[in-house]
Design a protein around this nucleic acid. Sequence first.
DNA 1: GTGGTCTAGACCACA
DNA 2: GTGGTCTAGACCACT
Lengths: 230, 230, 230, 230
Amino acid sequence: MIERVEPTAAYELVVDRIRRAIHNGTYVPGDKFPPERILAQNLGVSRTTVREAIRVLEGEGYVEARRGATGGVIVSYQGQTEERWRPIVQERLGELNELLDFRLANECAAARLAAERRTDEDLAVLAAAHDEMQRVLETARFRAADSAFHLGIADAARNRFLRKAIEDARSAMWMPLDPLAEQVFSTANSHHDRLLEAIRARDPEAAAAAAAEHLESVRQDLYRIVGSGD
Amino acid sequence: MIERVEPTAAYELVVDRIRRAIHNGTYVPGDKFPPERILAQNLGVSRTTVREAIRVLEGEGYVEARRGATGGVIVSYQGQTEERWRPIVQERLGELNELLDFRLANECAAARLAAERRTDEDLAVLAAAHDEMQRVLETARFRAADSAFHLGIADAARNRFLRKAIEDARSAMWMPLDPLAEQVFSTANSHHDRLLEAIRARDPEAAAAAAAEHLESVRQDLYRIVGSGD
Amino acid sequence: MIERVEPTAAYELVVDRIRRAIHNGTYVPGDKFPPERILAQNLGVSRTTVREAIRVLEGEGYVEARRGATGGVIVSYQGQTEERWRPIVQERLGELNELLDFRLANECAAARLAAERRTDEDLAVLAAAHDEMQRVLETARFRAADSAFHLGIADAARNRFLRKAIEDARSAMWMPLDPLAEQVFSTANSHHDRLLEAIRARDPEAAAAAAAEHLESVRQDLYRIVGSGD
Amino acid sequence: MIERVEPTAAYELVVDRIRRAIHNGTYVPGDKFPPERILAQNLGVSRTTVREAIRVLEGEGYVEARRGATGGVIVSYQGQTEERWRPIVQERLGELNELLDFRLANECAAARLAAERRTDEDLAVLAAAHDEMQRVLETARFRAADSAFHLGIADAARNRFLRKAIEDARSAMWMPLDPLAEQVFSTANSHHDRLLEAIRARDPEAAAAAAAEHLESVRQDLYRIVGSGD
DNA sequence: GTGGTCTAGACCACA
DNA sequence: GTGGTCTAGACCACT
């Protein structure tokens, strides 16, 4: 009836923000973060708090801090093989399915609204991300462009609640499956093609359908990972 | 790119929990809350923190604390006339529209999934809430039953993310519009009828359509409030 | 610079109020207090708190509680001989002198203002108290009339701050010196005569002088008690 | 006959102490208070209680709390124009007159006793406060020196009851009338001159007369404020 | 090293 | 047995 609250320390929130920025490709392995002072300012917290967060992320192997004038905080490489992740996916399968249903609801709605409301600027952003995805070879870069594409749709839908729900859900689904990602590049690109075209053509239903198809194919990928162990 | 974090104090979380419990009708005006000591235990915080939250809610006029063995913290009456709320609705109109689009996405999806997955127990819960809505005269009780109905659908959909999104959105839309609510009782009831029937019949598309229709009529009500001032 | 605070429990305040009422003769030995319920109402506290206070006063020997229909809380007799109090007066002599200087300041000012502002009603109250003092034999009754007289002057001065200061100071000086009191009856009466006449004649300076003389004679009485042990 | 008691929470006592310290100029706008932990120790209460008091004072606009090593609780600036305070003075006029009569009684008595009992150390304190008053330009500093001067007289009188009565009365009269204060600087200084000289000369009657004259001129100032609105 | 928050436990005043 | 207050101690976030 009334559930437990769990107070979250400021530095945990910062950890979350940074981790999410890495997951959605804002920063890819090898990238350097802005200086702590700047980060602190942007996040609206003190530098101590940022440092605390970075220490945690270092512990998790997400980032690496280097001292000196040429130093800074850089994102680490941490690709994982499909093999190592299969048990984890298996365990989370129920949750991942729920997440996909949740994304279906929100990303289809966003695609529909984006098709209605998109400006030419929105379209340019989406097209750029789409181009980027077809050009890049590196998984991390692909993921960044992928995020930019899907969040660009949410932005074009002009709805901050859908935007946040989509961002949350994508972040929650994230897994460092570099090898897998490569296999699905081409499939993803064909879906993205259809989605982009529908939005360009201002066709809400086609956009929603393309989004749904895309997400269902992601679901198939997950089942394939799980199944491939048998 | 990287957004501000806003650290949330434990007592703020408690304020939110309690406020939400009032908004969704878990406690209606005149109801007494569990004793502070019990609340603290349930919420997993100390009594001081609960009291801090109650003090805030007292300041906002949500609750009133009475001492003594027969005392306790009770929910205040704070009905507002449509007149007083028109400017506030007007100001929030953009946000409310976004919220409705967000609810459309999630509540239609929930209705669809509920129609597929509902058990007989789910149906019993929905039917009970539906009956309650048609029986009660008091606005607060109606609101409670309304919440029970819609969250019951989310529960039947077996998806915690949809559930949370729906709860959040409903809570964010809440306004103490008692008079308005009364006017829309009958309309709401007819929509709920259709929704319940679709779920009973395990018809996903009909359920989604009924949910959509219901939310669009809520949107019309909001515009009516704003427009009635001319 | 910033001094300690000492929080006072409600029941301590009640103890103080009741003790003061006994000291200034509102209730004299043998008198019965109002029922607890009434006391609680008048004091603005709950009955439990009144009971707590009475328990303390019982412990101090001020009152005695008797059960049953004819029962109630009655003020105890607790006369003390001069002998027993001499050491206590000696110890408090510095404080008592300060109190007398404080009373001089405030009672003279009150006498002066009373002479200017007194109404015929004020005069009647003072005259009644004055008569009472000359008639009574019992120490307790004399003290009651004495209090009525002096506080009546403070009331006639129409100044709540002087009133409170006088009441506080008189209460702080109180000692259960029944034998002493008898010895000074006649002296006190002659001073009171002069004070009453000056106020009746609306002569501020004479009133202040009479008040001063009265208090200085009280000071002499104290030194006599202390000295009489040599 | 028996008056209501009003139980005072510890934090209310602390609020009072701090507010009084501000009123009598112990801390002037811009000053920083001792750290909460020290305050708590000095006041003999827990830090929670001190914080509760500070929260109240923050709400009243008396103080402002800043975090960080260079932070602390500082006294706010809150000067008020004569205009804004006229109605308030008007409303309190009766009470203020009573307070002035009360101060007359006690401050004249204190001046008289101070003239008799002052040591050279007392004189040095008074002279220092007197010098300070003639030197400072800032209202707040003047008020602080003024308080030091008058309470210094009470201290020289060696009477804790007069001391407390004077401090209470001065605190109760306090108003944030900065502009007014400036206008009366010179008048006050001339009165203080005479008062200081009488105490230095050990002339009780002259001291009392100077104190009386000073207070009567304050009364005139109040009437001037009230009258100036016509 | 400051203010901000939280905890666990206690006692008090109230009905 | 309720809310109201207080304590002693702790950790966190800020500057």
